[in-house]
């Protein structure tokens, strides 16, 4: 039994296309037939992490792996990296520029929101070395 994988590329500062990867992820999960609540959690995380890449990360890739019991979303970028991960996970902490905040982004809810909706979140990031988020969701039948 092979897992289903799909990769998408995310372009930095492309606000016209931003969100499209999340929509594709969503559509794919729907066609697999996962329950709506799980899809909702994944798509919120996909969107938040996609927007992080678009705003801060430079170009990146999103890799989705789907198995019957688990969904993994890896979002990797070659951006500036996160200086203090613990701080970044605090609600309301934001490094977004005023320009992005004017566009309605950068409320400091991105990573906290991902943490809240995911079953597991691994952040692998060093300043200047880019960021890799590994977000996993478990699917247990009937729950």
């Amino acid at each position: 039994m092979t897992d289903l994988t799909k990769s998408f590329s995310v372009k930095a500062r492309d606000f016209v296309k931003a969100g499209e990867v999340s929509i594709e992820v969503q559509e794919l999960l729907k066609s697999v037939g996962f329950p709506p609540d799980l899809i909702r959690r994944v798509s919120i995380c996909a969107y938040e992490s996609e927007m992080n890449v678009v705003m801060h990360g430079g170009d990146g890739t999103c890799r989705l792996t789907v198995c019957p019991k688990r969904i993994t979303l890896e979002m990797a970028d070659a951006g500036p990296g996160i200086e203090d991960i613990e701080l970044a996970l605090q609600e309301g902490y934001s490094t977004a520029t005023p320009e992005y905040q004017e566009m309605g982004f950068g409320a400091g809810m991105g990573l906290p929101n991902i943490q809240k909706n995911a079953d597991d979140l691994k952040i692998d990031s060093k300043k200047g070395k880019g960021t890799r988020l590994t977000i996993t969701f478990d699917f247990r039948d009937g729950s």
Binding site: M1, L4, S31, V32, G33, P68, F139
Partner: peptide
């Protein structure tokens, strides 16, 4: 009604579609 196929079958099918 749920989809006639299970999640595992759907993944298999989507791999072939891909």
């Amino acid at each position: 009604g749920d989809s006639e196929r299970s999640i595992a079958e759907n993944i298999e099918r989507l791999n072939r579609v891909k």
